[in-house]
């Protein structure tokens, strides 16, 4: 019975812990794209650098904008030449076909999708701006998805924790019934409810601690089984990205939480049992 209980606790907690870990890693990944929140304003080709600087100046007073950068045609051309591999072909062009671009970086506390979208629409209407582009919409959508998933994870965590409370409660209830004669004798000899409850709370404590350790190991197992595929994938993208495991405090939290909920289960059941038994 104890083994079963421990297994149920472990599985119930491995789920939310793994879910949490996955979200944490996706979050870390998406945070690494933060610097690319910039909006690119493509000006009309005929717009000259003086006008672009004027536009930059007029935008710089806005509260929602953190920084602005004017990228001149020649600079853009040079960058394009280096990166695209069309260097020689570009040499054949008579003049530079690239427009001037102004990079607009919104302030971080302003950077939620709705605000940025509104900003993009507004910038679009400015004179001299041919179009405003914001590439990171998918990132924002991802952030929203993470937020939804996090809520789901929380709900799952709450439900499974409730399950732990019930399974520990049930285990303790069976033990209480086993020990009913002993408990009655102890009451007759003057044992307080606190005294009778104590060993059962210890039991809840140990169930929680060991179940929590098992859950931690289960999460570690899932993590380890994913690290090498993720590393290979990351290699294919020439990325340095690697998975993170639960840190020290998150691990402590997992164990403490496990002990807390299983002790709660034990406490509830014993208290109810003793209350029905009184006096």
């Amino acid at each position: 019975m104890t083994g079963m209980t421990l297994l149920v606790i472990a599985i119930s907690l491995t789920f939310p812990a793994t879910f949490y870990l996955a979200l944490k890693n996706i979050q870390t990944l998406s945070d690494s794209f933060k610097e690319t929140y910039a909006i690119s304003l493509y000006l009309f080709p005929q717009v000259e650098i003086e006008e672009a600087e004027k536009l930059k100046k007029s935008l710089s007073s806005r509260e929602s904008i953190a920084s602005l950068k004017v990228i001149d045609k020649s600079v853009a051309m040079e960058a394009f030449r280096q990166r695209s591999g069309f260097g020689d072909a570009l040499g054949a062009l008579d003049d530079n076909p690239l427009p001037i671009v102004i990079e607009v970086v919104p302030k971080p506390d302003f950077a939620d999708p709705d605000n940025i979208q509104a900003l993009v629409t507004e910038l679009q209407t400015l004179p001299n701006v041919e179009f405003a582009q914001w590439d990171m919409q998918w990132l924002m959508r991802l952030k929203e998805l993470i937020a939804i998933a996090r809520r789901g994870a929380l709900l799952l965590g709450v439900l499974l924790s409730l399950g732990v409370v019930l399974i520990v409660g049930n285990t303790i209830r069976l033990e209480l019934q086993d020990r009913l004669p002993k408990i009655e004798i102890m009451k007759i000899l003057g044992a307080t409810h606190t005294f009778i409850r104590r060993p059962f709370l210890y039991r809840g404590f140990w169930l929680g601690l060991i179940g929590g350790i098992w859950a931690w190991l289960g999460t570690l197992g899932l993590y380890l089984s994913l690290t090498s595929p993720v590393a290979r994938l990351s290699d294919l993208y020439h990325s340095q990205y690697s998975l993170h495991f639960l840190n020290f405090w998150e691990s402590v939290f997992l164990l403490a939480f496990s002990m807390l909920i299983s002790m709660t289960g034990a406490w509830l059941v014993v208290t109810r049992f003793l209350w029905k038994l009184r006096p």
């Binding site: 009451k187 007759i188 000899l189 003057g190 044992a191 307080t192 005294f195 009184r278 006096p279």
Partner: peptide, 13 residues
Amino acid sequence: DRKIPYFRRKIGL
């Protein structure tokens, strides 16, 4: 009720 345990310690049964 909560004082009963302490009372019972003073009698033998």
